[in-house]
């Protein structure tokens, strides 16, 4: 059983479990799935600086902070305790494209030749880790949600603004992947 759990979980197992978290959160506490909100609550808690958008009772949203702490712990469970030590089995064409970006480490969940503390202090590292992070935080709040709140929760509850958001997530992602990221990763 443990050996089976350590294998990568196929999409038809993981997708439905992710989907079932929507009714679980609704039923156990009337909560709507959303992860990027935790970033706003954290800002409201530590650096509100009289900004209107950060002046609200973040303490009443503590459930969301507990939820993301759980995700952090889940990352440890999945990524350390249940780690089988094998590389992610991406398609050969992706592998070739990634090699073309100058990446040669295929161990683990993310490439260690980019995500390390030496690369962080280079233009490439700053763009990928710092600018990328800023865009994730800025863009998700501007859009009113991220992949969880819009793509999964929003579309599941048939909200057309969420569909619009997801379409633009993909437009942005495709522009980055095919036109901009190749330049940055080659730096």
């Amino acid at each position: 059983m443990l050996e089976l759990l350590k294998e990568p979980w196929p999409w038809y197992v993981s997708g439905p479990i992710i989907g079932i978290s929507i009714p679980i959160l609704l039923i156990i506490g009337n909560k709507m799935l959303g992860i990027s909100s935790s970033l706003r609550h954290t800002c409201a808690a530590i650096a509100p600086f009289n900004i209107q958008f950060l002046k609200y009772n973040w303490k009443s949203e503590m459930w969301n902070i507990f939820f993301v702490i759980g995700i952090f712990i889940g990352g440890f469970v999945g990524g350390v305790l249940l780690n089988n030590g094998e590389a992610v089995k991406i398609s050969e064409s992706t592998m070739n494209d990634i090699k073309g970006m100058g990446i040669n480490s295929f161990e683990g969940l993310i490439p260690s030749d980019i995500f390390n503390w030496n690369t962080l202090f280079s233009l490439k590292g700053l763009l990928i880790m710092v600018l990328g992070g800023i865009m994730i935080g800025f863009g998700s709040r501007y859009a009113g949600g991220c992949t969880s709140g819009h793509a999964i929760m929003g579309i599941s509850s048939l909200q057309w603004p969420s569909l619009v958001a997801v379409i633009f997530f993909f437009i942005g992602g495709l522009l980055m992947t095919h036109f901009i990221a190749p330049l940055i990763y080659q730096l």
């Binding site: 880790m129 800025f138 709040r141 992949t147 437009i171 940055i184």
Partner: peptide
């Protein structure tokens, strides 16, 4: 915001 988020998602992965 959606476009900016998507770009960040693809940049940082």
């Amino acid at each position: 915001g959606g476009t900016i988020f998507g770009m960040g998602w693809a940049l940082s992965g």
